[in-house]
Computed example of a mutant assay.
Amino acid sequence: MTPPKIAFETRLKEAACETGALLSRLLSDTPLADEIARPAHLMAAMRHGSLNGGKRLRPFLVRESTALLGGPAEAASRVGAALECMHCYSLIHDDLPAMDDDDLRRGQPTVHKAFDEATAILAGDSLLTYAFDIIAAPETALADRLKTELVLALARAAGPGGMAGGQALDLAAENHAPDEDGIMMLQAMKTGALIRFGCESGAIIADASREHRDRLRAFGHKIGLAFQLADDLLDVTSDAATLGKAAGKDAARGKGTLVALHGTEWAEERLEVLTAEAVDLLSPYGEKALVLQEAARFIAGRDS
């Protein structure tokens, strides 16, 4: 039997390659049915913001959670690509001067630097909209009822009560530092919500029971908290060359984080607890869950 860590690393790389190839096809300059035209400059900016590497962790979570419950792999690939479009839109907008004002993303110029601010806004808008197109399209071979559930779940995860709302709280935190509960809510919304969707969507795609959906949702919540905590830890302990983006920006902007509140030792201990809780949630699935359990350990221990 392949060790879980090696199996995870292999599956993560495969998912990244396949997601990148699918996104490349989806983001071609050729218009789809009922589209009038695809401006080349806009499409180039969209590709710059989404085909620039990255681990493709969120599509991986969609694929693996779907496989765990025996759902269709092709539909999972398309839903994963839709989720990655949503994630990349958020990064493009997050990097804008009016938001976090970053010049570097995944080791290369951010979209507003490589193009311009207006194009970056439109590229983000287009990726956001296209995410729902990909799910709803006939090529995503799922029952309409399941597509509706996916669209609703993604909208709730990405909208004012999820990622976008979390970004609003994050900007406000620069002027009024939140307490611990406020930080946890902010992070569960800004970062955790899309990761949670990545796990929960597998149960929807597989048309699984509410019990399975709730369990994967809880798993996604735990690893989402761990992801952001690890990110905050890296912001303190790593450098721009390793991260592929600026380091130390949270402290420079006065943003409240759990690491700033409690220190690095507490954060490392908390990551261990979150990982153990996430792994335990999937224990009823036995060996079928080993890769996802290893994903939880990777998220907590990553170095970039």
Rank of each mutant, 00 (worst) to 15 (best):
Q187G: 08
A188G: 14
M189Q: 14
K190A: 05
T191K: 05
T191P: 01
T191H: 02
G192P: 02
G192K: 09
A193L: 09
A193N: 07
I195E: 00
I195H: 03
R196D: 07
F197N: 05
F197K: 05
F197Y: 12
C199W: 00
C199G: 02
E200L: 14
S201G: 10
S201P: 14
S201D: 04
S201C: 15
G202T: 01
A203T: 06
A203M: 07
I204V: 14
I205R: 04
I205P: 02
I205Y: 03
I205K: 05
I205V: 13
S209N: 10
S209T: 15
S209C: 12
S209E: 14
S209I: 04
H212T: 02
R213W: 02
R213T: 03
D214M: 14
D214A: 15
R215K: 14
R215E: 01
R215T: 14
R215Q: 14
L216V: 12
L216Y: 06
R217S: 15
R217I: 01
R217E: 11
R217L: 12
A218Y: 06
A218H: 13
A218P: 04
G220I: 12
G220L: 03
H221V: 13
H221S: 13
K222E: 14
K222T: 08
I223A: 03
G224C: 05
A226D: 02
A226P: 00
Q228K: 10
Q228W: 04
L229K: 09
L229S: 03
L229R: 06
A230T: 12
A230L: 08
A230P: 04
D231R: 08
D232F: 02
D232N: 11
D232H: 09
